[in-house]
Each structure stands twice: as structure tokens, then as C-alpha cells.
């Protein structure tokens, strides 16, 4: 994979660490996007180096800033605890051991307004890059650096072709396609990474299809 000069001179970010601060903010923001909708409480369970060194690197401020929707270069990031309190968002930090996970991994548990609980696990990979590795107990692989469609659907024949044909009909080229599921016939995830932004009409149309639970579009934002 070619390396952009802006991955070398960049990201523009709040210090002190691209993996422990910028990556953590991005992880929080992407996790909140995937959780979808509003939430009143968040638990952050930290694994590995995140668990050992989070206090010295502002990982805690960055994660809270991220779930509040702040970007990694937002100068309000160090004030995220106060901002969360002002907005009535409760949060807590704890430590967890996630076997096999990368050094900088967090399990983020969202308590949604409707009463549901969503659990998203992601790792900071360095240089501000991240990967969401688990959503509600199902393994996945979401890097969020390209325009991405994340669909949760029933595991049954024809779902994938419905999704890909809808994306194709909007004129978008599929760069990467991944499918995962936990057990046969239950829920499955389809991830599509595209070269260009996926229009919101795609998710609107797909969500009306029986068997599709939710469709989230992730835009990586400008460089």
C-alpha cells in the first residue's frame, strides 16, 4: 500500500501521542458512530498499554472527546470531561484483559437512550490509525480510513448481493469487501470500503430491505 506524504507529515492532532491520544480520540468517535444514536453513559475498559499508560497520555480525555464527536485536532479535547458533564454524559474507566488484542485496545460500552447496550472493541494502530475489531461480540475489521459502509443484517441468502447491487447502482466502486458472522443464521456484518463517499441515499434504501438491521456510513473526513 502506498504511503501518503500526509501520513508522514501529519496527522494534525492534540498531543502528546499519535497512538494514545489521536488514535484514542478517533477510536471513540468511530465507536460512537457505529453505536448509532444517542447514549447517556459510556464505560471505557482499557487493555494493554492503554491500561498501563493512559493517564500520562491523555488517553482518557481523548476517548471521552471522541465519543462526544470531537476530532483528534480539536483544541477542546483536554476539556472533554467538563464538556461531557455539561452535556449530561456519564462515563467510567476500568481495566480489562482482552486475549489476543493489540497493545492499545479499548472496549467501549455504550448505554443507549432506548435501553440497549452496545459494545465496541477497537485498537489504536499508531500514527492515529485505528481498527474496530469487534461489535457486539462479533469479530470485524473496520479501519475507517476509506469511505465505509457497515451493514448489520440477518445471515441469510441474498443479503450480500442486495447490498452490493445497491452500492453499485449509485456508481460507487467497491475497494474492499468483508463479511463476518458469529453463528450460522444469526446476525452478520458486511463491510464495504469504497474509493469515493457513499451517498446517504444508499443507506436509506438498504435500511428498508427486510433482514437489514442497520446501515452506517463512515466518512473518514479530510486529510
Amino acid at each position: 500500500m502506498p504511503i501518503s506524504i500526509f501520513d508522514v507529515t501529519g496527522p494534525v492532532m492534540i498531543g502528546p501521542s499519535s497512538s494514545h491520544t489521536a488514535g484514542a480520540a478517533r477510536l471513540g468517535r468511530m465507536a460512537a458512530l457505529i453505536a448509532g444514536g444517542s447514549f447517556f453513559k459510556v464505560d471505557f475498559l482499557l487493555h494493554g498499554s492503554f491500561a498501563r499508560t493512559y493517564r500520562g497520555h491523555g488517553t482518557d480525555f481523548a476517548l471521552v472527546a471522541g465519543v462526544l464527536g470531537m476530532r483528534e485536532d480539536d483544541e477542546n479535547l483536554p476539556r472533554s470531561f467538563e464538556i461531557a458533564k455539561d452535556r449530561g454524559l456519564e462515563f467510567s474507566f476500568g481495566v480489562i484483559d482482552i486475549p489476543g488484542a493489540g497493545e492499545n485496545t479499548a472496549l467501549i460500552r455504550f448505554y443507549m437512550d432506548g435501553g440497549k447496550i452496545r459494545e465496541i472493541v477497537g485498537s489504536s494502530l499508531g500514527g492515529g490509525r485505528i481498527c474496530i475489531i469487534r461489535v457486539d461480540g462479533i469479530e470485524t475489521e473496520l479501519y475507517c480510513d476509506n469511505p465505509t459502509l457497515f451493514a448489520v443484517h440477518r445471515d441469510r441468502p441474498g443479503m450480500l448481493s442486495r447490498i452490493t447491487s445497491e452500492v453499485a447502482s449509485s456508481g460507487i466502486n467497491i475497494a474492499v469487501l468483508r463479511c463476518t458472522r458469529k453463528e450460522k443464521g444469526n446476525l452478520a456484518y458486511t463491510i464495504i470500503e469504497a474509493d469515493d463517499e457513499i451517498p446517504s441515499s444508499v443507506s436509506g434504501t438498504l435500511e428498508k430491505i427486510p433482514g437489514i438491521v442497520s446501515v452506517i456510513l463512515i466518512s473518514p473526513g479530510g486529510k
Partner: peptide, 21 residues
């Protein structure tokens, strides 16, 4: 110092080495 104080910097190539270039 800006980096350690959680101010805004441009990593180059990393945040820890953001002062040199």
C-alpha cells in the same frame, strides 16, 4: 512542550518528534 501540554501539533513523522522538522 505544546505537544506534552495537549496542544495542537502536526506529527512529523510522529508526535514525540514533532519539533524537529
Amino acid at each position: 512542550e505544546v505537544n506534552a501540554a495537549m496542544g495542537r501539533i502536526c506529527a512529523c513523522p510522529t508526535a514525540g518528534s514533532c519539533g524537529i522538522v
